[in-house]
Write a protein that binds this DNA or RNA. Structure first.
Lengths: 346, 346
DNA sequence: CTGTTAGCGCGTTCAT
DNA sequence: ATGAACGCGCTAACAG
């Protein structure tokens, strides 16, 4: 049995205590910074032994004793196994992980299709203190995932969603997509654009809906001579977006501006147009959404709205830490600003 | 104290046992699939109570009892707080997480600058069964990080590195960068290119070195009329790459082909050339390395070598699981193939 | 097939 | 300022 060997190799509090000639309790006090209860000399002695024996605290034993899980679960629901393919999600995870780690919490990450959630270890076992979730898919499925997590009676923070604020232990963190839409509308109106088209995936996200609403409200607020047409794409994939815009152009006159529901959509549309002899931005102006470092590397450089994805992750982590410490979320809906970034496509 | 409430809400094995009128041990047997020891009827009864009471096993208690950590730590050492900004790393993490989750292991992720490693919870606490690491920075610092992890006397899998195989509990997983270099060399030679330049970051990675060596070997194997010049860039950033190539072109005749140490480098170089009236691929051919979905979105489409990053993560997970089960790594160095993907820049 | 006993490593409580 | 006893939830070993 391997455990025997491990025990030899791995020192426990008791081992440290014996080596330092004190009781285990004293070691525990040193470890937990209760300096009031330990004289400076014994403390030094204990610390030296901790160092010498390479003592590391066994997290599971402590967790069991104090009945507290010092880890947060990040659930990414995605049909694709490459659940971290999206740059937005990656930024969120990084921000979340950093905030949690700073508070001596750990981030346990798990990606899966929605139907696998009930079978996942993270749900079947009680091993994290709360959940953060980034969920894709149709609205009904997304709601079901959130419901399942909440059924665990643990705090849940969901990204890029909006709910009726009936559940006190459910918190949402999202960016100001509506405001981003307004910024885009205002920018295009200032350039005298009156015929706009926006390409959106058939399967609408709340974020996309808000972006559309923002553009609409911008146009409406200026008297309403400008018009926005929605172009539905079967999915966000390169091919689907290209065929969607091809279909649209076959039946309609070209718009003066095309807004992508996000950057990849905008880029796919732009490439289609350019490949068909349309000049950008002279003939058609293009705007994206959710930009990252990536557009530095494309020509022409896409005008876009930059997401504070990393900050979203940070905010979620802070909200969760407050919930865990205070017993309740301080705020149950967080909305972070976005920034307009002009490129050379408008 | 909150624990009291939690206890009411969260059922333990004992609660389930009492509700089902059996002993805790029987419940444990049901939970662990020891069906031989439990009759079908009591099993059904127990399962019903588990369901009814929404019982979830307390991972820390089990972990303590069986002296086994069912989690693997993924350490990403990066100076930037956006440690998941790199698409390659994200793919690796996704593959790793999926393999581990399938085996009922959890992935604990933590990104940090190298100097923070010793202070991190994941190191100070004993809470994961092993480590996977993706480390950036100068060679000496990378080696130090790996050394620190290994000093914990736990199994370590490192990505994209190569070591002398002296340590039996250290395993490397990397892609065939040398082979990728060869593919690039062969491709360019077939197009009669004889003056090549390769842009590499000053701070060399083993992966980059191998790519260079592969190109060199390809050129050498054909008689050696073709020449490869290295261009050193201060970093991989857009700006540094652009100034590196500008400096080079000021003092040398333009090469017939430029190979980027990776895709962003190649793209930055390509954009510089195109912005200065150079035709790609007519005047200069361009090749990248480590391509992902992203190049679908750039024009002209970059010729590149596609990395099996997701597969690297999977392989690392499999290696770690074998190590944990069998007590030793089956193989201590894994090399995965790469694929040549022709674009329109060659 | 099922129950009993004991103890994993840690921290709290109470005693000294 | 330090120590002893106890128990967190779970399962290995053994008894029945």
């Amino acid at each position: 049995m391997r455990r025997k060997d491990d025990r030899q190799a791995r020192a426990t509090i008791k081992d440290v205590a014996e080596a330092a000639g004190v009781s285990p309790m004293t070691v525990s006090n040193v470890l937990n910074g209760r300096h009031q209860f330990v004289s400076a000399v014994t403390r030094k002695r204990v610390e030296r032994e901790i160092e010498r024996l390479s003592y590391r605290r066994q997290a599971s034993a402590r967790s069991l004793r104090v009945a507290e899980q010092r880890s947060i679960g990040m659930v990414i629901v995605d049909e694709s196994s490459h659940f971290l393919a999206d740059a937005f999600t990656c930024q969120v995870v990084a921000g979340l992980a950093n905030v949690l780690n700073r508070a001596d919490y750990t981030l346990t990450i798990q990606g899966m299709p929605g139907r696998q959630l009930p079978a996942s270890m993270i749900m079947r076992n009680y091993e994290v203190g709360g959940f953060c979730a980034m969920v894709s898919g149709p609205a009904a499925e997304r709601a079901e995932v959130v419901g399942r997590l909440r059924a665990l009676r643990q705090p849940v923070v969901v990204f890029q969603e909006q709910f009726e604020p009936s559940d006190p232990d459910l918190c949402t963190v999202r960016q100001d997509d509506w405001g981003g839409g307004r910024l885009i509308g205002d920018h295009l109106l200032a350039r005298r654009v009156s015929e706009l088209a926006m390409i959106v995936p058939r399967q609408r996200w709340p974020a996309i809906e808000n972006r559309v609403a923002g553009v609409r409200d911008s146009l409406a607020s200026t008297g309403g001579t400008a018009r926005l047409t929605l172009i539905e794409s079967a999915s966000e994939s390169f091919a689907d977006v290209q065929s969607a815009i091809a279909r649209h152009l076959a039946a309609n006159p070209p718009p003066q501006a095309v807004i992508g529901g996000n950057d990849p959509i905008a880029t796919a549309a732009m490439l289609y147009l350019m490949d068909h002899g349309v000049k950008v931005p002279d003939d058609v102006r293009i705007v994206g959404f959710n930009g990252f470092e990536a557009h530095r590397y494309s020509r022409p450089r896409l005008t876009t709205v930059v997401s504070a994805a990393y900050a979203l992750g940070e905010r979620a982590g802070e909200a969760m830490l407050v919930r865990l410490k205070e017993g309740a979320f301080a705020s149950r809906d967080h909305v972070l600003p976005v920034y307009f970034e002009p490129g050379s496509t408008t």
